[in-house]
């Protein structure tokens, strides 16, 4: 009788299930490189968004006494408050690196965000609907992909003027194309699974099926791809900025700072190149490590 009550008690307590997400989280946190990447990423985000409060100078403030003499007087030092030194115009490099990192991260996140939302839905709809719809939607993607996007981006920045908004629009326009192809491919294999058929047989509406059954099963792939997409976007932006077409002064980005630093290399102001480069490289590495960790954690085949 006692066992029966115990069993009955057991029957009353709802058991918390371990979702695939919870499993993946455990696996992710077991991966040391990935966790290190995540920690680095968090620190860089803190630096980018709160580093400003530590800066002793406005990022646009030009110290005329240092202008042209930064190799001697603009050396990185705690005492002067120029932690990372100054650039050739006598501006505080610390404040500018903080801002550059922030812009680069934002560009990366916005690009990846557009890719995730637009690309995933577009690909899932094309893949699930199939037939003519699929054909029209994917041929559109093919056409957009065949346009040399760097050329179009540069033209856009020249015609509509250089601004962050324009950069976001330009990068957002191209970033979702790859994602939509990947999402479509995965959807094609998911839609033939029996649980989708069960939903169809039950009478669930197509759009609900896409949102409830297809997209959650795409999520693993999409998350992995988007963490690898962020650094790609950052590189694209840096390239544009390096060409001198990206963010407009007095705003800056890591690419623009590296470009300026590379230009000043010969004058003994190597810190002007190294500080932005350090943040650039660390950000990219952190994203790649996190992406790798996520892929290992979310892909059940590599267990």
């Amino acid at each position: 009788m006692a066992t029966q009550t115990a069993e009955a008690d057991l029957g009353q307590q709802p058991v918390k299930g371990r979702s695939l997400w919870a499993d993946a989280r455990t696996r992710f946190f077991r991966n040391k490189a990935a966790v290190a990447g995540l920690v680095a990423l968090i620190l860089i985000c803190l630096f980018a968004f709160f580093g400003e409060f530590l800066a002793q100078y406005e990022r646009a403030y030009v110290d005329f006494s240092l202008m042209g003499r930064n190799a001697v007087n603009g050396v990185p030092s705690i005492e002067t408050g120029h932690y990372f030194g100054t650039d050739e115009s006598g501006r505080d490099l610390y404040a500018r690196t903080v801002q550059g990192t922030r812009i680069s991260l934002l560009v990366g996140l916005v690009g990846a965000g557009v890719a995730v939302i637009v690309g995933t839905l577009y690909g899932a709809i094309a893949g699930y609907m199939g037939g003519k719809t699929d054909n029209i939607m994917m041929r559109t993607v093919d056409i957009l992909m065949s346009v040399p996007y760097m050329f179009v981006l540069i033209l856009m920045l020249v015609i509509f003027g250089r601004s962050i908004t324009m950069l976001f629009i330009g990068i957002g326009l191209i970033s979702w194309l790859d994602m939509s192809r990947i999402a479509r491919g995965q959807t094609l294999s998911i839609k033939n699974k029996e649980f989708v058929e069960a939903a169809v047989a039950t009478g669930v509406r197509p759009f609900t099926i896409i949102l409830r059954h297809i997209v959650p099963n795409l999520a693993g792939l999409v998350i992995v791809y988007s963490t690898l997409l962020v650094p790609q976007m950052i590189i694209t932006e840096s390239f544009i900025s390096f060409l001198g077409l990206g963010v407009q002064e007095p705003s800056t980005s890591l690419g623009a700072l590296i470009s300026a630093g590379a230009g000043q290399m010969r004058y003994g102001v190597l810190w002007q190149l190294l500080y932005p480069l350090f943040f650039f490289v660390v950000t990219l590495f952190a994203f790649f490590f996190v992406g790798d960790g996520l892929r290992d954690a979310l892909d059940p085949k590599d267990r």
Partner: peptide, 21 residues
């Protein structure tokens, strides 16, 4: 469709892995 329901061959494949039972 509510009057005609189906039980599938592969028990695990017929259940969405991301949903609770």
């Amino acid at each position: 469709r509510r009057d005609v329901q189906m039980v599938f061959q592969d028990p695990l494949a017929a259940l969405n892995p991301r949903m609770t039972v």
